[in-house]
């Protein structure tokens, strides 16, 4: 069976043929399966935002193909419409796209464009609001009366309400305070666990993503330079730092300990792993 999402040799060049020509993506191969929680990390300008806009046919590849269920996303206008509701894309600062008079109407915008009937739309709005932890009382307020964090949730709900097979989030916690960040992340994780959908989460913060992604893809200068489970990725501390990414603090601590001669394993990225490794070391010492 074809993978849920498959990208082959994707290249994107902005303003081709002008003095502003810029190669944003170069020969990118990528596969996503159902149920995965994929973190995409990369420096600003590494091509990650350009990449995700290809996933729902917003950008047309300069060359290469994007396949959803083995079928090209760009075959016809009907297909594009279908793809946009199946791959839900939440942009950076999504609250800037709110426009309706009430939060309810704004969340309903996507489902309405899918031409669903009224009851179905209402049900999806309530479900999406619940997923993002938005109080039902807020649904009849104007989106412009909400707080920053609530606006963000309402905007994310607007995409979740389309019930996409793949939910793509571009820096969903940018500009939020630590508490707002934690809450959004918790909501997204809960959503992922409940619907068993695929989530693609773009960030440049390793600290966040390391805790919950089942797989990480690292972008650098328009290419995927690493792709694998977090434990594997975080073995390459030096390489990650060289391309300008900060590894999680605990990974850094463990790398420094190892450099001092302590035999702790590579690829540690959570406090628990580090604790187990250190306790194991201590236990080993006592036994000897």
């Amino acid at each position: 069976m074809a993978p849920l999402l498959e990208i082959r040799k994707l290249t994107h060049i902005y303003s081709q043929g002008t003095p502003f020509e810029h190669v944003a993506l170069k020969d990118v191969d990528f596969v996503a399966e159902k149920g995965e929680f994929i973190g995409i990390i990369g420096h600003t300008g590494s091509g990650k935002s350009t990449f995700v806009q290809h996933l729902n046919a917003l950008l047309k590849p300069t060359s290469g193909t994007v396949l959803l269920d083995g079928e090209a996303v760009f075959s016809s206008p009907q297909r594009i419409r279908q793809v946009r509701s199946r791959v839900g894309l939440v942009f950076q600062y999504p609250e800037y796209q709110l426009f309706e008079e009430t939060v309810r109407a704004d969340i309903a915008y996507g489902p309405k464009n899918m031409k669903l009937d009224k009851e179905e739309i209402e049900q999806r709005v309530l479900e999406a609001a619940d997923f993002v932890g938005l109080d039902p009382e807020l649904l009849d307020k104007s989106p412009f009366d909400l707080s920053g964090g609530q606006k963000r949730r309402a905007a994310i709900a607007g995409v979740i309400a389309m019930r996409p097979d793949i939910l793509v989030l571009d820096e969903p916690t940018a500009g939020l305070d630590p508490r707002g960040r934690e809450e959004i992340i918790a909501n997204i994780r809960r959503y992922h666990a409940r619907v068993n959908g695929t989530v693609i989460y773009i960030t440049h913060s390793m600290e966040d993503i390391a805790r919950f992604a089942s797989r990480l893809a690292v972008f650098c200068e328009g290419r995927i330079v690493m792709d694998g489970v977090p434990g594997e990725i975080f073995r390459h501390v030096e390489e990650l730092e060289r391309i300008g990414l900060t590894v999680p603090g605990i990974t850094k601590v463990m790398a420094l300990l190892r450099a001092r001669g302590l035999p702790v394993p590579e690829g540690i990225y959570t406090i628990h792993q580090a604790m187990d490794a250190l306790l194991g070391l201590k236990g080993g010492g006592e036994n000897a």
Binding site: Q53, Y96, G110, N113
Partner: peptide
């Protein structure tokens, strides 16, 4: 940007 965001919601 806004056009893309709304297109992503089926506009």
């Amino acid at each position: 940007k806004i056009m893309n965001a709304q297109k992503a919601r089926g506009a």
